[in-house]
Amino acid sequence: MADKTPTESKAPFATRIDPTKEGLSQEQINFIRQVELQQWQKKTQKLRTRNVVTGLAIGALVMGICILAERSSVNTRWLHSIR
């Protein structure tokens, strides 16, 4: 039962259209450009969000390290002043 191979589908799937090789009308070319622009905008928005989140995380990590280092140096100075 597990060794059965799936049959080939007769349904066509999406292929990239090259506007320079295909005989497309100006309306079709404009539609393709519009769709590609929307895809780029969606992708760049996701990247921008991810970059902001990554930057905030790195900033929080650096601030945490700085605060711990400052506390450590303050505690060390305090211990040396007692002696």
Results as ranks from 00 to 15, higher is better:
M1Y: 01
M1H: 02
M1S: 04
A2N: 11
A2L: 12
D3Y: 03
K4G: 03
K4C: 06
K4L: 14
K4T: 07
T5K: 12
T5A: 11
P6S: 06
P6A: 05
P6M: 03
T7L: 15
T7I: 12
E8Y: 07
E8G: 12
S9F: 01
K10Q: 11
A11F: 09
P12T: 04
F13D: 08
F13K: 11
T15G: 07
T15N: 05
R16M: 09
R16W: 07
I17E: 05
P19M: 01
K21D: 10
K21H: 06
E22H: 13
E22Y: 10
G23W: 05
G23I: 03
G23K: 15
L24P: 06
S25V: 02
Q26Y: 02
Q26R: 08
Q26L: 09
E27W: 00
E27K: 08
Q28H: 03
Q28G: 01
I29Q: 02
I29S: 03
N30P: 02
F31Y: 10
F31M: 08
F31E: 15
F31N: 07
Q34S: 14
Q34N: 06
V35D: 11
V35Y: 06
V35F: 08
E36G: 01
Q38E: 15
Q39K: 14
Q39W: 03
W40L: 15
Q41K: 15
Q41S: 08
K42F: 06
K43G: 01
Q45D: 12
K46V: 13
K46D: 12
L47F: 09
R48I: 03
R48H: 09
T49C: 03
R50W: 08
R50N: 13
N51R: 13
N51H: 13
V53Y: 00
V53S: 07
G55Q: 01
A57N: 14
I58G: 00
G59A: 09
G59Y: 00
L61S: 10
L61Q: 08
V62N: 01
V62T: 13
M63T: 14
C66E: 07
I67E: 05
I67C: 11
L68R: 03
L68C: 11
L68T: 07
A69M: 04
E70Q: 05
E70W: 12
E70K: 05
S73M: 11
S73Q: 13
S73R: 10
N75L: 13
T76V: 10
T76P: 00
R77G: 10
R77M: 12
R77E: 14
W78A: 15
L79H: 13
H80L: 13
H80E: 12
S81W: 09
S81R: 07
S81I: 05
I82A: 04
I82R: 08
R83D: 12
